[in-house]
Design a protein around this nucleic acid. Structure first.
Lengths: 192, 192
DNA sequence: ACCGTGCATTGAAATAGTTTAAGAAATCAG
DNA sequence: CTGATTTCTTAAACTATTTCAATGCACGGT
């Protein structure tokens, strides 16, 4: 059940059997059907979530009502509204399921207990934060420096499995272009 | 000399006189003239820098040779290539001075000593990282969800002093548009 | 099997943004 | 003060992207 999770942690910090056992005793398993919400804007986010199966997205709703996707989370990805979680202020993001999904949900309080008992988990989550930070940095540079087509090609390169798996209009909402334009780009690339 | 710096820290963690004294004994003062570099892509970043006076920018150079600005740092801002600093891998960013500047530079080793002696500084720098992370998140949403004009208006709103202080073409490189187009936007807004 | 709705495609017309080039205005160094 | 450099503006032609509208397709529910 928790193989993926332990594998994910082991990439950054070593765990002995007891630590691993304690760690895997913490999360609650949650099932979400497609379109169900894990978090809505306005709620305070009280958990960090690891995806065991399926696919979620974090998105933001602008005043015009358009959805802008910050992140897709498939198997072995962590997700939450980090700012809301860390500051316990209302979330600005929605998180919902693009596929039926199985999640390991860590409550904030349980994470605190984890840090107390196995301090190196602080390090683990700091590394997660760093990686997320750098990913965002690169995405900013990508966005201000490239055309939609270049962004799409980069996305395809970086996430070949996601490109298969997601509906196109979701990818468009991630890239920051309209679905129609993405369709045109694809048409053009297919011909060439 | 270090008033700004202590004030900045005090916003997030309380310091007694001795801690403050130790803290301010660590940084080296550095003067940069306009156009001089603090860091070049390819170098490993070994410091965290607090701006006492002047203005720096972090930018990235793409294959076409265009500059894309990630951040401006004026008085009371921290700057570095965080990923390079944390992982000790070569930097991808350049940091240089847009004005003659005075900096307080904290070496990585000195920061480690600081964490040992005054652990709450870990908390301080974690908060810095969180804030930077969220700022980046908002910028991504801004970039994928708005036009150049909307981004310019938001920038002006959020950083009225910067808008006065910086040459327009630098602002354009931050917004991800050409200087010509920014000029056009401004012309149009001035008329309206 | 049937219907309804959501998704992808296409094309035409409109808007947003870039490129190139030239010149005016401001700034800086000697 | 003067020449050199950097910055800002303008305009025309071009490219990227959006909007709107129409069409066909596919899939989930009943």
């Amino acid at each position: 059940m928790f193989d993926l999770l332990l594998q994910n942690v082991a990439q950054h910090i070593p765990l002995d059997a007891e630590e691993a056992h304690f760690f895997t005793s913490l999360p609650k398993i949650k099932h979400l059907k497609k379109k169900e919400f894990l978090l809505r804007a306005g709620e305070v986010c009280r958990f960090e979530t690891f995806v065991l199966e399926g696919c979620l997205r974090n998105y933001y709703l602008d005043r015009k009502g358009d959805e802008h996707i910050l992140q897709f989370s498939v198997e072995s990805w962590w997700t939450s509204d980090l700012y809301s979680l860390l500051t316990q202020t209302p979330a600005t993001q929605f998180i919902d399921a693009l596929e039926d999904s199985t999640l390991a949900v860590f409550e904030k309080d349980d994470l605190e207990r984890l840090y107390q008992r196995v301090p190196k988990f602080e390090r683990f989550f700091r590394i997660m934060l760093q990686n997320a930070f750098v990913a965002h940095q690169q995405r900013i540079l990508q966005n201000i420096g490239s055309t939609g087509e270049e962004r799409y090609l980069a996305f395809r390169e970086k996430h070949p499995t996601l490109e298969q798996r997601l509906p196109q209009h979701q990818i468009a909402a991630y890239l920051g272009i309209t679905p129609e334009f993405l369709s045109k780009i694809r048409g053009k690339l297919a011909k060439a």
